[in-house]
Simulated scan of single mutants.
Amino acid sequence: MEFKSGLWQHPGMINFRTLADGHPDLAHSPLLRGALLTLQYTRTHGSIGLTKNMAFKRVFVHWAVENFDWPGKTSEEMFRYNKVINEYEFPPLEILHFLLISLRLGRHFKGEFRLTKRGTELAQAPALLFAELIPYFLLRMDHSSYARFEGRPFGTWDVWINVINVEADFGTTEAALFKNFYGEPEDWHTAGWREMAAFSSCVLRPLEWAGFLIETREDALGKQACHVFKTPLWRSALHLDSDDILRPMPVH
């Protein structure tokens, strides 16, 4: 695992609200769900076997693919083309493995992944796990380190999140958000597709994996449009400077 951590960009004024363990909006976070499942699996089985390269062995990787319910990566689709899947072929699990070790919720010991005392405690405390996992993942990871492109978009999380807070309040598109930040209406069909890819991989995808955004894709007039919506978890968990200028939610 060659991911990078450290304060990639100054987080600015992004405050995470404290939620209760039973808060229903926590269910919107794929990363939290995967972390809970991994911690609980390890607690139940005692450990997870590791390969010589310190990756999770395939038996657990297959279990994770089948149980994580990861957006855009159903088990049927993944096993359709690969009967055998390694950790690096399921990026969410590879990143989650890195995060659990970095946060000292798990450790490698004699060829096995085992829980620390803190990891055992948080396996049954979703809100506390969310509070440790998500800010670290979102604000401290260098998301370009696991993207396909080395380039990272210009900007800070403070600006990105506060602008998206307003622009995506009733839904928007990936291209419209890109234009808001960078002024050029780039998309996957223009010469600026690499810049668009960097923005998508390093900003929108981490927000989706954290559980704050939902992205839906559809083909229209020969082009693929990506629509972006805030999840209920965004409103529950984030307290932002731009909240004051949001329009009231429509009542039906």
Rank of each mutant, 00 (worst) to 15 (best):
L93Q: 08
G106V: 14
L100W: 06
E132S: 09
L96T: 01
E121S: 14
F178W: 07
G106T: 12
L99K: 02
I164Q: 03
L177N: 09
A123P: 04
R148A: 02
T173L: 07
E87T: 13
D219S: 11
F98Y: 14
A168I: 05
L128M: 14
E77I: 08
T173N: 06
Y146A: 03
F149L: 14
V203I: 13
R114W: 10
R194V: 07
L96D: 06
P126T: 02
F109E: 14
A191R: 13
E87F: 06
L93R: 05
W188R: 11
L128A: 15
T216E: 00
F154H: 12
A127W: 10
A168P: 02
L103R: 10
F178K: 02
A191V: 00
Y81I: 08
M141F: 07
A220N: 03
E77P: 00
L129T: 06
W193I: 03
G171C: 09
E150H: 11
H97K: 08
E167R: 04
Y136C: 08
A198V: 04
A210N: 01
E174Y: 00
E121H: 14
W157Y: 09
G111M: 13
G211H: 04
P126N: 09
I101M: 11
E195L: 07
I161H: 01
G111K: 10
E87Q: 15
H189R: 09
G211Y: 07
D219E: 10
G151N: 11
F181D: 08
L204A: 03
L103G: 10
F109D: 15
E186F: 08
G119V: 13
T173K: 04
S201F: 00
F212A: 04
E77S: 12
G111D: 14
L96C: 07
G183C: 10
E215C: 07
A220M: 04
P135S: 09
Y136I: 01
A147P: 06
L99A: 08
P92Q: 07
E132I: 04
P135V: 08
R152V: 05
R194A: 00
G171P: 05
E132H: 13
Y146N: 01
V159E: 11
D169A: 10
A123T: 12
T173G: 09
S145W: 03
E186H: 11
K117R: 15
W157C: 02
L105M: 15
G211V: 01
E150G: 10
C202A: 15
F98C: 08
E208I: 08
L103D: 10
I85D: 05
A127T: 09
R107N: 15
V166M: 04
T216C: 07
K83W: 13
E121T: 15
S102I: 08
A125S: 15
T156M: 03
S102Q: 13
V166A: 12
T190D: 06
I85F: 11
L100E: 00
W188Q: 11
T172Q: 10
E184I: 12
L115W: 05
N162F: 01
N86E: 09
T172G: 06
I164D: 02
E132D: 13
D142K: 00
N180F: 05
L204E: 03
L207K: 03
F199W: 06
M141G: 07
S102E: 13
R104Y: 06
A210S: 11
N162H: 08
F137N: 07
W209K: 02
H143Y: 01
I161E: 00
